[in-house]
Simulated assay, not measured.
Amino acid sequence: MTVRFVALLFLAAVAPSAAILDPGDFLALQAIRKALDDVPGSRFFSSWDFTADPCGFSGVRCAGDRVVALSLGEPRAGSPASPAASTPPQSRRPSPSTIAELTNLQFLALSRNFLSGVIPPAMGSLVRLRTLDLSFNQLSGSVPHELAAMPTLSNLVLAHNHLSGELPAFSSPALVRLDLKHNNLNGVISALPPSLEYLSLTWNRLSGTVEWLLPQLRRLNHLDLSVNHLTGPIPPPPEGAVTIPTVDLSYNQLSGAIPPALATAKRLYLNNNRFTGEVPAAFVEKLLNATIQTLYLQHNFLTGMELSPAAEMPVSSSLCLQYNCMVPPPAKMTCPPKAGSRRSGPPPSVPSGADKTRI
């Protein structure tokens, strides 16, 4: 109680004309600062002078007397603007338990630092949090179930870490973006909320089928499940059930026929799977009228594609059919430079601030 009272008097003295920061948030920021160091060449924390108003610190944003945003990494997905917004990585090992004391946080970005260890379940106590970005760190362990059930969380970015274990059942009704690419996650893809618009689980070790996923996630505009161990067919979804602009299911073990409903995608990557049968006629129509911009079907077991020899492929469309059980039709194909045994594919469009690297 004494420490909180001293902090309150101190803030009143240094910032009489500004809103007085909540004493608990003030002490939490002090603890965070003591746990962090600037990396060589960075002066990110030069503004963290506690004789001034903490709401003016680099990476800190307040609403009234509470801290609502903390960005100690590269700004992503709406990070608060600050003088240090374009600096290199700034911090090392901030204490998650201390951060959890900032109970009014709505935005937390700690990407591109040197964070290690597990993600503490206590993060789930930040019930007002809307964006959590811990990408490009060295975090291990599983994705806490507490994160998957946060009521207001809309953006969860944990890409490029060393996370393992099975995916929790995501039930957050506000979740719009889920980015877990480049980890070591395994098991099946379980429940996902229908609110999702962006889903990237590429470069993991996920298995099982995806037959339920396409019809249920009606709001998706980006789906990337490539480079996993997914198996089984994709059942023909009802007409109009799939309207996802970018679908990447490449480098799995998916089999069966290609559903015509996938022809609604603008960029479709089905290469390096076990699909059989003929390419649906809907794909030919969409390619010729330039509705499909990219169609990669190489390295499957497809047996035919009805395309007139006189047909002219629009310059804006890319088609690759190499390494199938058919003679490719006499149409100009635009295959990636490495359409052989090496992984290949251009980076599809992703939302601003998102990262996408393919080889």
Rank of each mutant, 00 (worst) to 15 (best):
Y323E: 13
A263C: 10
Y251E: 13
K181G: 01
F57N: 10
L126E: 07
E239P: 11
A81E: 07
N228E: 07
A63T: 14
K356N: 15
S58A: 12
K181Q: 12
T2D: 10
A84P: 08
A265Y: 01
R4L: 10
E306L: 08
N183H: 08
L319E: 05
N289P: 03
L206C: 00
S349F: 08
R343A: 13
F57G: 06
S255W: 07
P280S: 00
A12R: 13
L11I: 04
E74D: 11
P23Q: 00
L206K: 04
A69M: 00
P83A: 02
R92D: 13
Q298W: 11
G124D: 04
R205I: 13
Y296G: 07
S317W: 05
P193Q: 09
L139E: 15
R61Q: 14
P348S: 03
A77Q: 07
T357L: 06
S352E: 13
L249N: 02
V127C: 12
L126N: 07
S349A: 15
L199I: 08
L9D: 12
A85L: 09
L270I: 07
A28R: 03
V210E: 04
P347D: 09
L108Y: 02
T152F: 09
T276N: 04
G59K: 02
R358P: 06
R205G: 15
V227I: 09
M333S: 08
S17T: 13
T264R: 12
G345D: 06
L102V: 06
I359P: 15
G124P: 10
P351S: 00
L270T: 02
A15K: 11
K34R: 15
F170Q: 02
D37I: 12
A261P: 03
L36W: 07
V327E: 06
P89N: 06
D133E: 06
L8Y: 12
A85C: 08
L287F: 00
F275D: 10
R92M: 00
A290C: 12
G304S: 12
S135E: 01
F301L: 10
K332W: 14
A149P: 12
D22A: 00
A63Y: 09
F5L: 10
A13T: 13
D22V: 04
T276W: 02
G24W: 01
L307I: 10
G208V: 10
P96Q: 05
L249Y: 06
N272I: 08
R112I: 11
E239W: 05
T103K: 15
